[in-house]
Every structure is written in structure tokens, then in C-alpha cells.
């Protein structure tokens, strides 16, 4: 059974995880076609993907770079590297 190397907890069986798919940042300002491409299109070809994995026992999300041809987990990505600012809600209380 596949093992996934958690950054702090060591290898854990893949059955403890839910796959969250490819990580991608929505284009906050985009024309309709660009937006649609973000919603539906994916990096389909084999290669290194940044993906979300949810670890059920600890209730935590992890980001990994994985080689999708070899099924090799290459490294874990700090979430800070991918986070982005929400547009400010000026009208918020």
C-alpha cells in the first residue's frame, strides 16, 4: 500500500487520505473564458503536480508535489507558499 510522507508525522498509508486534486489559484480578475478554463481545465499530462491531500485522522490538509507518472511524492509545500488574499470586503461590519 502506498505511503504518503507527512512532513511531521512520517509515512502514513494512502487509505488515511482523501485526494483534494490539483492546487490552483482562481484568477480573481478574469474574462469569462479564462475563468471557465480555471474552473474546468486541468493539467492532464503526467508530470509533477501540486496537489491537496486531506489526512482524516488528524483533520489536516497537506500540499505535496507528486510525480504523477511514477506516483512519487517529491516534497511537501508549505501552505504559505500558495495562499492568496481574498478581495477585501469594504462593506463588512
Amino acid at each position: 500500500m502506498k505511503l504518503i510522507p507527512l512532513p511531521d508525522l512520517g509515512p502514513h498509508p494512502v487509505t488515511e487520505f482523501d485526494y483534494g486534486g490539483e492546487q490552483s489559484r482562481p484568477p480573481l480578475v478574469a474574462d469569462d473564458a479564462t475563468w471557465a478554463a480555471h474552473v474546468f481545465n486541468r493539467t492532464g499530462a503526467p508530470g509533477v503536480l501540486r496537489e491537496w491531500w486531506y489526512h482524516r485522522p488528524t483533520g489536516g490538509w497537506y500540499l505535496f508535489e507528486r510525480d504523477t507518472a511514477q506516483d512519487r511524492f517529491l516534497r511537501s509545500i508549505p501552505v504559505q507558499d500558495i495562499c492568496y488574499e481574498l478581495p477585501t470586503d469594504t462593506s463588512a461590519v
Binding site: 490538509w61 495562499c83 492568496y84
Partner: peptide
């Protein structure tokens, strides 16, 4: 949980 992470 994931949104919270993505949006910092």
C-alpha cells in the same frame, strides 16, 4: 478547512 488555509 482548506479555504482557511488558501486564504491565509
Amino acid at each position: 478547512t482548506r479555504f482557511a488555509l488558501e486564504w491565509g
